[in-house]
Design a binder for these strands. Sequence first.
RNA 1: CGGGGCGUAGCGCAGCCUGGUAGCGCGCCUGCCUUGGGCGCAGGAGGUCGCAGGUUCGAAUCCUGUCGCCCCGACCA
Length: 475
Amino acid sequence: MAEKLLTREKGFSEWYVDVVLKAKLADYSDVKGCMVIRPNGYAIWENMQRVLDKMFKDTGHRNAYFPLLIPESFLRKEAEHVEGFAPQLAVVTHAGGKKLEEAYVIRPTSETIINSMFSRWIQSYRDLPLLLNQWANVMRWEMRTRLFLRTTEFLWQEGHTCHETEKEAEDETLKMLEVYRAFAEDYMAMPVLAGRKSDSEKFAGALRTYSIEAMMQDKKALQAGTSHALGQNFAKAFNTQFQGRDGKQAYVWQSSWGVSTRLIGGLILTHSDDAGFVAPPKLAATHVVIIIIGRTPEERGPVREKAHALAADLKKAGLGVIVDDDESKGPGFKYFEYELQGVCLRVELGPKDLAKEQVVMVRRDTRQKDFVPISQAVAHAEGMLDQMQKDLFAKAKKLRDDSTFEVNSYDELKAKADAGFMLAHWCEDPACEARIKEETAATTRNRPFTLEQKPGACVACGKPSPGRIVFSKAY
RNA sequence: CGGGGCGUAGCGCAGCCUGGUAGCGCGCCUGCCUUGGGCGCAGGAGGUCGCAGGUUCGAAUCCUGUCGCCCCGACCA
């Protein structure tokens, strides 16, 4: 790992790939379009899972698991759904040495197979609401892939719920979007806009789709999570009915919502720098690395002892800690290596520090260097991590806010297409949306709930618009 | 599917045009030395040159075919 990392200035997307590979987050596999998530990357995913899973449980959901293979006929039952996913399906046609009677598709999402079970499990309004979540892998055959951001197979969670009324289902849809917003901002330190997607951007088979949208360092948007109001579309396709309080049969109202390992890509594109990966403390795999410095065994012995004692204290405080006692590599080498891998804090501990009863503590993102009495090391580390979490969010938010503009003409929209988020009036005609995409490469991201809606004139055609929507280039 | 590129040691590459003992850097192993921002020295291990045919006395190199991957455009979390 002797070569330097590419810089963002020189080529943003090459830099991104370089960070992923050199920080050992993931690697290309021998399967086209598929990646291997390495321990450094998987640890981040495990932390995300742990936090999100608790949030789902706290909002009343339970985990379940459904099959990877879905009978092809299931997908066909919902017309819009199959049309949307058909180009991306991988299909199993042979098994056990024979051609199958009916082919199976490898799940691109699980609405259909889950509904096939819902229809068996639900009889009465007393069975509702039914609130499930599944952690799983899915497969979507993509034309063009990018590590974490878009791969053929990826890991995600998909929530699937059934409700008695449309309002309840809608409330659930928005509640889970809010869970995603809170997770993105409070844990990933990634500011997002929560809002509604345009019809052309909505999930195949949904009535309405909502998303959280983040701005990456190159000012392009990343859709970081989606929540769908499915209405009764799948319920009708699978006959998922219940007997209501009035004694009549009715179709359930449903929601579904998901986030994926794409979030790890979002984390990288939001916080990392020319020295490598930067992880927000709340999701970091390793919070502290203690580097032992010393020339001779006489010097290293006491330092080592102190380092392990400190590591134990830090672990007791709930932090992820590594003690690096490898004598075959110099300290300088290690500084670069751990910065590359995104360890939040570096503690340097050598003979000079022992003499002064102190440690040197360096923050990954700012390289702020503090000399701290050993007795206060744990508290100081916690303080630095806390501040780092806040600062990462503030920095990302400033970039986004500084790169968000109101645009009032088509010329302006064309001119600012690379400058960030553009708030523009749109008449809701898909033709205008398509034309803008064609001519500027910017697409509608969502209509943020926080953006006050006042009527205006569509930037493309001049017809009345109900309010501004976010346009941006996107991943 | 269209356009471009690449397959030679774990990684990055040279060699190919003009056929003749398979090389360099990094990494790895051993020993010594060093350690507060990518140490140094010495020795060493490691490759059916993507695969299959063909031309030739002889192919990494020339020809044909084939497979795979990456990058750029049209679908998507």
